[in-house]
Design a protein around this nucleic acid. Structure first.
Length: 808
RNA sequence: GGACGAUUAGCUCAGUUGGUUAGAGCGCUACAUUCACAUUGUAGAGGUCAUAGGUUCAAAUCCUAUAUCGUCCACCA
């Protein structure tokens, strides 16, 4: 077969994408006896709509391991999902179609969400496929899909029955922009320059006290002032009553050791509820409740003349009035970190509303224990998990006041408030559209029920991906085979959410870990080391890179750093990957040209020393790379492979080989041909997990394989002990060193690559070097070679090898 | 303020339990095109391993500080 000089990745990759799909080579086989290896992959948010090189890096790093496992003989269960559920999707649709969820019919809004997610899914699937991600697309799930909803509702019912879920009306994190309650994990810090206002409060006896606050708009919600009990300045005022400015409401001066004397004036204003600290004091000291902000972030009746204003407007208005009254002593600029909602960036408020919670605070110890049992790759990522668990201070709020999510399978009796759960058989259920199966309340006999209208937090569903994949309580045979899953793959920023919540769920539902091991990737960054983002314009679209270069090239780049480390995008490194594929291509051309009349037969054996050498090196490489992949270390594997391929195989072995391929010595030639075919086949397999397209193409050409036989379904090379030989490897190293020295000498002395060498003397104790001499002599056109005999010429000391050579 | 990671050649990154002269790719310089490959080959230049101390016969590697970058958490009056 004739190959063109240039490898054409575009055509080849497109071709194999189609063939792989046609024969479904990545399909999980239900009836196989092979051990199962199952992977829990991140379901992308459809709101993202694009895959950038950073995402691609994360997917690829894990996928390489999956390909390796497949070749190791595992029955791979590799599903893909989409997180098309909940708040992120709603916000995305609201923005894209400029709709207001309060002004559009609920059904119409949901339809819009579904339409959008369907479109985005197609884009995603295409992008992931083009990267060569070997997912079994028949295992696709979606978090808004029926199965996921059903399992999420089952999860709720199971937890409720176990007493792990409660509903309570209490102050919670609230986003006034998204108009929903949030959980601790939804928050993010944002630094900003704020203003600290020093405001005069007056005591009953008209003496004034200065209170420092960054939120003067909360004065109408002020319910107490606090000082540190040891603060000498204020000791005498403890228990006194003070009037708030403008509103003239009386509040008491109370004490708390949490108040820092140095902050502000040492006098702290406590409101309903400015921050978590306020909530804490409100609970502990049973303070009054003066809620002035409603769900939209608009001031209500209690705010008096500021009623109807938004938070920012109210702040301006109050500050202006305070100024006019001469009640502001001074204003300072301060850097402050504000808790904002990570999806919209709007500062969170505390608002009281009935919300559902899962008890997690009582189980921190158990979660830590589970964390310690999990195999972490890389290890240091475990610390991030433990930090998060230790720092938890709120139970998990799982209800959201939104539309597009899994409904709670819950009604309440309109009279006595008894909670009525849906029957497991009728799941998934939307209580707004159906009545409960029972016709009257088991407690009071009332016949009217109120459906729960909130929906679940999106993590409530995505925390169940292992159970959704395993069809928990739906398909026992499957569950038994794939659960707990073998591997979770994700990036580090969602340890506190996805990883943590998944452990929570599995702990409660199945009393086990959800997976055996977790692989955590770093971030792919732009060339300046910044996180890629579309809005900042440093967004490198993965499909564009695949289009410009190749998927194999991009995959090669993704192996450039070790697991868990961040990696800057470098177009040059993608090019290096393309270069590698081309080199592999040309090696194949070389092999094909030189095996033209070769016929495979059992009689052919490796008899020549150079062939034995490269086989020994190759076997060592197989050993090393197998070990690296077993430790999820694609980066080390790639480095070993690259070194062997370029430095030993191409630069030296193939050159040495040429001499015999052109010679009349039949056996010497046969040995080389046999070695070439064998070694190239092994090499292809070693490269296959990293660069699946080019290896597939070459494997087929080289072996004349049928279309439906994929290299990715062949077995991983085993170490063949008969070829292992440490001594010969050592001699090979020396050989390379000698050849290098000759080339260097020749170029320096004659400024030419072609100048023949008159004489070479090798002074060494190494025994078998003369086995290589024939080839060296021909390559360098050396007249005479001497062993352990001094000649006239230039001497070079090869120190590490206890060898000297003399060149003339 | 606490935690984790990073800091190695012009750039992107490796560097196993401390062990000769610290590596690769890209880029750069010189030479080479009848050769499987110019998406090439050969040779070469290029590093005080962030800084300062310490442990050791021996430190990029271990310890203690410091600096810078990234991330997470805490603080939020």
């Amino acid at each position: 077969m004739q190959l063109e000089k240039l490898y054409k990745p575009k055509l080849v990759e497109e071709k194999w994408r189609k063939i792989w799909e046609k024969y479904q080579i990545y399909k999980y086989s239900e009836n196989s006896n092979k051990p199962v290896y199952s992977i829990d992959t991140p379901p992308p948010y459809v709101s993202a709509t694009y895959l950038h090189a950073g995402h691609a890096m994360s997917y690829i790093q894990a996928e390489i391991i999956v390909r390796y496992k497949r070749m190791q003989g595992y029955n791979i269960f590799y599903p893909m999902g989409f997180d098309d559920n909940g708040l992120p999707t709603e916000r995305h649709v609201e923005k894209k179609y400029k709709v207001d969820k309060t002004k559009i019919k609920r059904e119409d809004f949901i339809k819009l969400c579904l339409k959008e997610t369907d479109e985005v899914k197609k884009i995603y699937e295409k992008m992931l496929k083009s990267l060569g991600i070997s997912v079994d697309w028949s295992l696709l799930y979606s978090t808004i899909g029926k199965l996921a909803q059903k399992i999420a509702q089952k999860s709720f019912i199971d937890l409720y029955n176990k007493g792990l879920i409660y509903q309570i009306e209490a102050p919670n994190f609230w986003c006034v922009d998204c108009q929903t309650a949030l959980s601790q994990a939804d928050l993010e810090d944002k630094e900003r320059i704020g203003k600290m206002y020093y405001i005069k409060f007056s005591k009953i006896d008209n003496q004034s006290l200065i209170v420092a606050t960054t939120r003067p708009e909360l004065i109408p919600a002020c319910v107490a002032l606090y000082v540190n009990p040891d603060d000498k300045r204020y000791k005498k005022f403890i228990g006194n009553r003070v009037k708030t400015p403008i509103f003239n409401q009386e509040v008491e001066i109370k004490t708390s050791p949490d108040v820092e004397k140095e902050k502000g004036t040492g006098l702290m204003m406590v409101c309903t509820w400015g921050d978590a600290e306020d909530v804490k004091k409100w609970r502990k000291d049973k303070l009054d409740t003066k809620v002035i902000i409603d769900k939209n972030g608009i001031f209500n009746n209690l705010a008096g003349k500021y009623k109807g204003l938004k938070i920012n407007q109210a702040r301006k208005a109050i500050v202006k009035d305070l100024h006019n009254l001469g009640l502001i002593e001074k204003v300072e600029e301060v850097r402050q970190a504000v808790n904002v909602h990570e999806r919209c960036g709007v500062p969170i408020e505390f608002l009281s509303s009935p919300q559902w919670f899962i008890k997690i605070l009582d189980y921190k110890k158990e979660f830590l224990k589970r964390g310690r049992k999990l195999k972490w790759f890389p290890k240091f990522m475990k610390v991030r998990y433990e930090e998060w668990v230790n720092g938890l201070s709120w139970d998990w709020c799982i209800s959201r006041d939104r539309y597009f999510g899994t409904p709670f399978p819950v009604w309440r009796c309109s009279k006595c408030g008894k909670v009525i759960l849906a029957d497991e058989k009728e799941l998934p259920v939307d209580p707004r559209e159906k009545s409960p199966k029972i016709s009257q309340c088991p407690v009071c006999g009332n016949k009217e029920f109120i459906p729960e209208t909130q929906v679940m937090d999106t993590w409530m569903t995505s925390s169940l991906t292992p159970l959704i994949n395993a069809k928990w309580k739906e398909k026992k045979s499957l569950f038994k085979k794939i659960y707990p899953m073998s591997l979770r793959v994700q990036a580090f920023e969602i340890i506190r959410t996805w990883l943590f919540y998944t452990i929570v769920k599995s702990h409660f539902h199945t009393q086990s870990l959800p997976w055996d091991a977790v692989m955590i990737s770093g971030w792919g960054l732009d060339k300046n080391g910044k996180k890629m983002s579309k809005s900042k314009g440093n967004f490198i679209a993965a499909d564009k890179i695949v289009d410009k270069y190749s998927a194999d090239g991009l995959r090669w780049w993704a192996t450039n750093s070790s697991l868990g480390q961040s990696l800057r995008f470098s177009e040059e490194d993608v090019k290096a990957g393309v270069k590698l594929t081309n080199k592999l291509w040309n090696v194949t051309r070389f092999v094909l040209i030189n095996i033209k009349n070769y016929k495979q037969s059992k009689a052919v054996k490796i008899t020549e020393y150079t062939d034995k050498w490269i086989m020994a090196e190759l076997q060592e490489t197989v050993k090393k790379i197998t070990n690296d992949f077993e430790h999820y270390d694609y980066n080390k594997a790639r480095i070993s492979l690259e070194k062997f391929f370029w430095l030993k195989y191409c630069d030296n072995y193939l050159e040495l080989c040429k001499v015999r391929l052109n010679s009349d010595n039949k056996q010497a030639k046969l040995s080389a041909q046999f070695t070439l075919i064998k070694s190239l086949n092994i090499l292809l397999k070693l490269f296959a997990p990293i660069i699946p397209y080019v290896t597939e193409e070459i494997y087929h050409i080289l072996n004349n394989e049928k279309e439906n036989h994929s290299i990715h379904l062949t077995s991983w090379p085993k170490v063949e002990r008969q070829y292992l030989n440490k001594e010969i490897i050592k001699e090979g190293e020396l050989l390379i060193k000698i050849m290098h020295q000759i080339r260097s000498y020749r170029l320096k002395k004659f400024n030419s690559h072609k100048q023949p060498i008159k004489q070479l003397a090798i002074l060494t104790k190494t025994n078998h070097l003369e086995n290589f001499i024939d080839e060296i002599q021909k390559i360098f056109k050396i007249d005479k070679i001497f062993f352990n005999k001094k000649i006239k010429g230039e001497l070079f000391n090869l120190e590490n090898y206890n060898t000297k050579i003399i060149l003339d």
